[in-house]
Write a protein that binds this DNA or RNA. Structure first.
Length: 244
DNA sequence: TAGGCCATCTGGTCCT
DNA sequence: AGGACCAGATGGCCTA
């Protein structure tokens, strides 16, 4: 008893899961027809012996014009079924290969995402950013770094610029994600009580979209912070990735 | 148990 | 024609 179609297809899936995208040769005539529980082509020397095989046809082998016509119809029918099966199998093989490519593509995408995570300031141990968090955080990080450079280029004397941008109190102020509550309190406030109050707040920067409600992360979001940069600056870092 | 995140499959669309 | 890309669907795993 040949394996049912579903089994054959799942076999194909298993083959693809083994990263075996080479499916050439799986569509050979008889083998495929057996696998797909379909009639084998009647062409060729072995065809007559297959006539009348169980499950294919109940026709007799008695010669005659009527029988020949029936046989021709039968052969045409078998051919159609066979071609449909081959078409189905062809589609299936293409799908399997496409799945393989898609899987590989997503693996590459994830590898790139891992590479991005690796260059972002690290969070506490065992904390892995999700995909969307990684993208948003990276955006914020780049924005903050660019903002730092921009401020540094505004003619502040070297040491002063650095001190203003990175006041000593702020250097260690973000060893990890701050609590949302404290973030919310310091969001854009720039109060004198803040250890980072001296830092420039880009919130006043008209080019900063930080205040827009369209942005994903608010002041309470831990992804607004990372070590080594002024808190005020960090907390006003925009994120252009809107919520849906 | 509900919700979030993820991997995978799938069909459609666009591009080369 | 075949590959890349995309978005929707689905099911598994984990956590609050």
């Amino acid at each position: 008893m040949p394996a049912p179609l579903e089994t054959c297809l799942s076999d194909l899936d298993c083959a693809s899961n083994n990263s075996s995208s080479d499916l050439s040769g799986f569509l050979t005539d008889e083998e495929d027809c057996v696998r797909l529980q379909l009639p084998v082509s009647t062409s060729g020397p072995s065809a007559p012996a297959r006539r009348g095989a169980p499950g294919i046809s109940g026709a007799s082998d008695v010669p005659g014009a009527q029988d020949e016509e029936q046989e021709r119809r039968r052969r045409r029918g078998r051919g159609r079924v066979r071609s449909e099966a081959l078409l189905h199998s062809l589609r299936r093989s293409r799908r399997v290969k496409a799945n393989d490519r898609e899987r590989n593509r997503m693996h590459n995408l994830n590898a790139a995402l891992d590479a991005l995570r690796s260059v972002l300031p690290s969070f506490p141990d065992d904390t892995k950013l999700t995909k969307i968090e990684t993208l948003r955080f990276a955006y914020n990080y780049i924005w903050a770094l660019a903002e730092t450079l921009r401020l540094a280029d505004q003619g502040l004397p070297g040491g002063a610029a650095r001190e203003r941008l990175l006041p000593p109190q702020c250097a260690p102020c973000l060893p990890g994600p701050p609590s949302p509550a404290s973030d919310a309190e310091s969001w854009g406030s720039g109060t004198a009580a803040s250890p980072c109050a001296a830092a420039t707040s880009p919130l006043s920067d008209p080019s900063s979209p930080a205040a827009s409600e369209d942005f994903a992360y608010g002041p309470g979001d831990p992804l607004f912070s990372f070590p080594g940069l002024p808190k005020d600056l960090l907390h006003t870092t925009p994120c252009f990735i809107p919520y849906h």
